[in-house]
């Protein structure tokens, strides 16, 4: 039996699989299917300083081998998260990554500061949400802004800080280097790719927000490419995500350079996807006589 454990920024994960922020809420709904302790970690729903109501529906559209979403960071705010959701999650014997966002660097820093006195294991700073008008992707698409917001949050927290990057940029390696220089302990990528669908009968965009984030198997090759480029450009760990739905997909992201792998849309297709991906990884490693998952990180042999 292969050793699936990985260590990122000093935090031990029993396996590299983490349901991605936004697909898994705070875990309650998936406990009906399996114990959350099977998971390497959980990235919680993006939390802002104050409660946000999110965007008007429709927020979901299916696309070939993928989907668009424009939820718009609906969340109860950091105080409610810390009071009502976090204590429960911390009893679940899995690593908790608190995903945070804000409209300004100050708001992001304030949210991070509130988590400082909790036992949350890591902070994942979202500088790449495509579905909100302020902050979000605006931070993630400019090196200057990415550096500014990372610096502000870095000052507010001693927790391991993961910065989640947007793929909707000319050079994701430049952004990754900027957040590394600003004190990020790790980066996670890729967030969704900005997309749009139109109902040709009504000539209306399917999403009420007009545009939304594309995820699912369609984006896997983009994720592999960007993870490979970023892993070669920075000296901090990379957490990979984008279209992973099988153990083989997760192995591919790790060979590209990811130390752990987040799972998004696959949870909607099959709520057991994260667990099946863990089993699939283990099977691949055993069949190929690889002793540990960490041994495959970044082992792609480029031509």
């Amino acid at each position: 039996m292969a050793d699936l454990s990985v260590n990122i920024c000093g935090i031990d994960f029993k396996n590299p699989i983490i349901p991605a922020s936004g697909v898994f809420g705070y875990g309650h709904e998936y406990e009906e299917f399996y114990s959350l302790s099977k998971l390497g970690g959980i990235a919680t729903k993006g939390t802002t300083g104050k409660k946000r109501t999110g965007n008007i529906a429709p927020r979901i559209a299916e696309t070939p081998a993928g989907m668009l979403n424009s939820v718009g960071l609906q969340n109860p705010g950091i105080d409610a998260f810390i009071e009502k959701e976090l204590p429960y999650l911390l009893t679940k014997d899995t690593v908790i990554l608190a995903n945070i966002a804000g409209s300004t660097p100050e708001e992001c820093a304030e949210v991070a500061a509130k988590l400082e006195n909790t036992d949350v294991h890591m902070i994942e700073l979202n500088i790449s949400c495509p579905n909100v008008k302020q902050g979000g992707a605006a931070f993630g698409t400019s090196c200057v802004m990415a550096e500014q917001v990372t610096t502000a949050v870095r000052k507010a927290t001693t927790k391991p800080l993961v910065v989640k990057l947007s793929p909707n940029v000319t050079s994701i390696t430049d952004i990754a280097k900027a957040v590394e220089a600003a004190g990020a302990d790790a980066v996670s990528l890729i967030n969704t790719l900005l997309g749009m669908r139109i109902d040709i009968r009504t000539r209306r965009p399917v999403l009420h927000n007009n545009v939304g984030g594309l995820s699912g198997p369609a984006i896997l090759p983009v994720a592999v490419r960007m993870i490979w480029q970023v892993a070669n450009a920075v000296n901090i760990p990379v957490i990979g995500m984008g279209g992973v739905s099988t153990g083989e997909d997760a192995i591919e992201l790790m060979m590209a350079g990811a130390c752990a792998v987040q799972v998004g849309m696959a949870c909607f297709t099959d709520p057991y996807a994260p667990v099946k991906i863990i089993d699939g990884m283990e099977r691949f490693l055993d069949e190929n006589n690889i002793a540990a998952a960490r041994d495959i990180i970044g082992t792609v042999k480029p031509w």
Partner: peptide
């Protein structure tokens, strides 16, 4: 009816505009 993803209440995709007891909007 609304377009849904997870179906179980985790992803917040199928939002419906409602009023709470105080008449305040909530999705």
């Amino acid at each position: 009816e609304e377009r849904m993803a997870c179906g179980v209440g985790a992803c917040l995709g199928c939002a419906c505009r409602t009023k709470d007891a105080n008449g305040e909007e909530q999705f």
